[in-house]
């Protein structure tokens, strides 16, 4: 056959190839649009933080900070807001988030092991409770917890905020970690058992190392939740020296205009650790969040 020289076939083949190319170009163009829409607000936050005030307060569009400056970062780290450097608020946020993770990781690992390694009475009710408590709005807990925290003398203390955040993050932590524990084949533990390892050794030497990546992902999720938490920090902290970042940011919005350079610099500082964590555990976080649904 002379397919290669047959003009009709060649035309058909060429048009198929062009169509394929066009399709690819269209897909990549759409991807570029999504890229810009997703990234622009983040870029705008960072670049505003590096602009001088006359490039910030203008009706013009200045895509790149040609007047590149560290003045806003310097100012928020030295003078800060509400009487303290931004460092203090970042530190408070870190203490609360790390404290939450330290307690939450242990508790959620124990509970997740219980629900995915044992069948026992009350197991299903426990899982359903986990689902339902996640639906309860923070406001429903806010008022009673505010009164309890005051009564316990934890008002205005970071410890109070840690305790509350452990409660807020634990149900989801157990829910997420449960699937990671379930993913470890039971036969490994059974083998260790038969070889004479104790229950604790089996847990510590066999299960724990295999669940560790999932535990890291879950912990990072709790860290981010506690790091971002606004409403409880707003209510439980009255002294500025105990503010976390989300609360401190509110104090940049003054009566007479807002210092946008400073607030963007601070927001950038608050966002950096979260983005780093996200990129680290991106894949596992998704599998944990939609766990069970995807495995089909």
């Amino acid at each position: 056959m002379t397919t290669l020289t047959n003009p009709q076939v060649r035309r058909a083949r060429d048009s198929a190839r062009t169509r394929k190319k066009l399709r690819k170009a269209a897909l990549n163009a759409t991807a570029a649009v999504v890229f810009v829409l997703a990234m622009f607000p983040v870029y705008w936050m960072v670049s505003t933080g590096f602009k001088t005030n006359d490039q910030i307060f203008t009706t013009e569009f200045i895509p790149f900070p040609t007047s590149f400056t560290f003045e806003h970062f310097d100012r928020v780290l030295s003078e800060g807001v509400a009487g303290n450097s931004i460092w203090l608020y970042l530190r408070n946020s870190a203490i609360v988030a790390l404290g939450t993770v330290a307690v939450g990781a242990v508790f959620s690992l124990l509970a997740a092991t219980a629900v995915s390694r044992f069948r026992f009475r009350g197991r299903t009710s426990f899982l359903i409770t986990l689902l339902i408590v996640q639906m309860v709005p923070a406001e429903a807990l806010l008022i009673p917890l505010f009164l309890s925290v005051k009564r316990l003398g934890l008002y205005d203390q970071l410890l109070g905020l840690i305790v509350v955040n452990v409660g807020l993050t634990l149900p989801f932590g157990i829910w997420m970690l449960r699937t990671f524990v379930a993913a470890v084949p039971k036969s490994l533990e059974e083998a260790a058992w038969i070889d004479g390892a104790s229950r604790f050794t089996t847990f510590w030497k066999v299960l724990f190392p295999l669940v560790a990546p999932g535990l890291v992902a879950t912990s990072i999720f709790s860290f981010i939740t506690a790091w971002n938490e606004l409403i409880f920090a707003l209510v439980l902290m009255s002294d500025p020296s105990g503010y976390t970042m989300p609360v401190a940011l509110q104090y940049f919005f003054g009566q007479r205009g807002t210092d946008w350079g400073a607030i963007m610099a601070s927001s950038t500082l608050m966002t950096i650790p979260v983005i780093v964590f996200f990129l680290l555990v991106q894949r596992r976080m998704v599998s944990g969040l939609v766990a069970g649904a995807v495995k089909g």
């Binding site: 997703a38 971002n228 606004l230 970042m245 509110q250 608050m270 983005i275 990129l279």
Partner: peptide, 13 residues
């Protein structure tokens, strides 16, 4: 990675 940035920004920010 790009949409991850949008996802990661804290709600207050």
């Amino acid at each position: 990675v790009a949409i991850m940035f949008a996802w990661a920004v804290p709600p207050v920010a």
